[in-house]
């Protein structure tokens, strides 16, 4: 740990309790070996403590007598905000509260469109000859039927594993399968040849 360089940013995040367990352990090990960082951390703590004391003093000295009554009196004597204003604020709050959800949904939908549209529109260009894994390795439908007439329409690599996407026509229906050759015993060689 002694070889790790001194990093003030890390000390600041440590001061704020924002380090992960792993980061904290590494820093603590570094602090044991580094008097410079220990002293610097003392300096940061001193300034932080003095600032906190200074900032809290005015509130301790302030007179809050009748505070709640004054607020409630002001609320009672003033008109409710107009409906339009309340709706505007409510809409802003809703957007803020659900931003992570709707941003994720929009991004997911956009990615899905980018991936699916080209796949679906490439259907007519695919070779008509059935190509695919040996019969014994072919995936089964939920009902346990063998799927036939597989037509490979794309190949992709994800996390180091190659997968095939192919459509299966049976009983006038089309199914798209994600078939991972690398995870199928005996199918690896076949996949590599494709």
């Amino acid at each position: 740990m002694g070889t790790e360089r001194c990093d003030t940013s890390l000390l600041l995040r440590h001061l704020d309790g924002e380090l992960s367990t792993r980061e904290r352990r590494r820093l603590e090990a570094h602090l044991e070996a580094c008097p410079d960082c220990r002293q610097a951390l003392d300096g940061l703590r001193l300034v932080s403590g003095l600032l906190r004391e200074k900032l809290e003093q005015p509130a301790q000295a302030a007179d809050f007598s009748g505070f709640e009554d004054r607020v409630l009196a002001a609320v009672a004597s003033s008109a409710r905000p107009p409906l339009g204003e309340r709706l505007r604020v409510a809409w802003g709050e809703w957007q803020r509260a659900w931003r992570p959800v709707w941003v994720t949904a929009v991004v997911t939908a956009a990615v899905a469109l980018l991936v699916l549209v080209p796949l679906l529109t490439r259907g007519p260009d695919v070779p008509s000859a059935p190509i695919g894994p040996p019969d014994g390795d072919r995936p089964q439908t939920a009902l346990g039927d063998r799927v036939d007439n597989q037509v490979i329409i794309d190949e992709l690599e994800y996390r180091g594993q190659r997968s095939m996407i192919f459509s299966v026509s049976k009983n006038n229906t089309t199914v798209i399968w994600m078939y991972d050759f690398d995870n199928q015993a005996g199918a690896k060689d076949q996949g590599d040849d494709l």
């Binding site: 607020v71 609320v75 409710r80 604020v89 409510a90 509260a97």
Partner: peptide
């Protein structure tokens, strides 16, 4: 706090 009271219903 007056604003909090007035807009509390919008707090999600």
């Amino acid at each position: 706090f007056i604003k909090v009271y007035r807009y509390l219903e919008t707090f999600q």
